[in-house]
């Protein structure tokens, strides 16, 4: 299997940092200098066709980790490789091209990746334009193909996303993320805030997309149900650190770290 993504020793710090930071933190804060370590020494890797889950409570560093993988944040230390290429700290045109061609992301809140005043088709096509597509017909065809693939009603392709329901917006996000057939799909709480039946259908859709395209996925969620449904392997994060990792069934079935035990035990 080929490696799609590898990250080693990622740390993101807010604050000056000091020698005492290394000795030990109180949660994710350093008592001596007051710096917050959003994530600390996070390493992970994803093979082609694999789904990696990241769970943890609010503030545990899940989304910060994802932001580093999406190249939104440059980590204070650590490196990120995409398809074998070191992409740590790339900016500008190179980053735009990487994002357009190899990365897709779905956020909990659709307005982070979608222009709500723009049509569903346009939101998908925008990704194609970023990747250099210059044909109206081809872009439109690809957008409507994805639109249908996400089980969205065909007649609403030219409707602005602001008139879409929450569940449908997630589908448009997914269509947009997959538009350029990226190697890696990042899902940041993709179903949080949706009702249970819609959640289940979105998760089914993600599973189908994954099966059909073989795209590698990193899914971040505080919902163990989502992780159990999607992820092959799992990281458990707390206070910005990875406290446990392993096969999903193994970690959820027999959690070793006290926090993982708490997390599994406190599921409703």
């Amino acid at each position: 299997m080929s490696e799609v993504l590898r990250a080693e020793g990622l740390s993101v710090r807010y604050g000056p940092g000091c020698p005492a930071c290394a000795a030990g933190l109180d949660g994710s804060a350093c008592r001596a200098c007051g710096s917050m370590w959003a994530i600390r020494d996070v390493s992970l890797d994803v093979e082609a066709g694999e789904v990696l889950g990241i769970v943890g409570e609010s503030g545990s560093g899940k989304s910060t980790t994802l932001a580093c993988l999406h190249l939104d944040l440059v980590p204070a230390s650590g490196r990120v490789w995409l398809l074998g290429r070191d992409v740590t700290g790339v900016t500008g045109t190179a980053r735009r091209r990487l994002r357009a061609e190899t990365l897709g992301i779905v956020y909990q809140s659709a307005d982070r990746s979608l222009e709500l005043g723009v049509t569903a088709g346009g939101n998908v096509a925008a990704r194609l334009f970023a990747a250099g597509w210059r044909s109206y017909g081809e872009s439109r065809l690809r957008a409507s193909e994805l639109h249908a693939g996400m089980e969205l009603p065909e007649e609403r392709l030219d409707e602005p996303v602001e008139r879409y329901s929450g569940g449908m917006r997630q589908r448009v996000q997914l269509a947009r993320a997959l538009a350029t057939r990226p190697a890696l799909l990042l899902l940041d709480e993709p179903t949080s805030g949706l009702d249970v039946s819609v959640q289940a259908r979105i998760l089914d859709l993600v599973r189908r997309v994954h099966r059909e395209t073989g795209v590698a996925v990193v899914v971040v969620s505080h919902d163990l149900g989502v992780i159990r449904t999607l992820a092959d392997r799992l990281l458990v994060m707390r206070h910005g650190r990875v406290v446990e990792r392993g096969l999903t069934d193994q970690v959820l079935g027999d959690p070793q770290h006290p926090y993982s035990q708490l997390l599994v035990g406190s599921q409703l």
Binding site: V118, T119, A126, R140
Partner: peptide, 10 residues
């Protein structure tokens, strides 16, 4: 380009 696309689509 998106602006142009929206014009043509609408």
């Amino acid at each position: 380009w998106l602006y142009l696309y929206e014009d043509h689509a609408r």
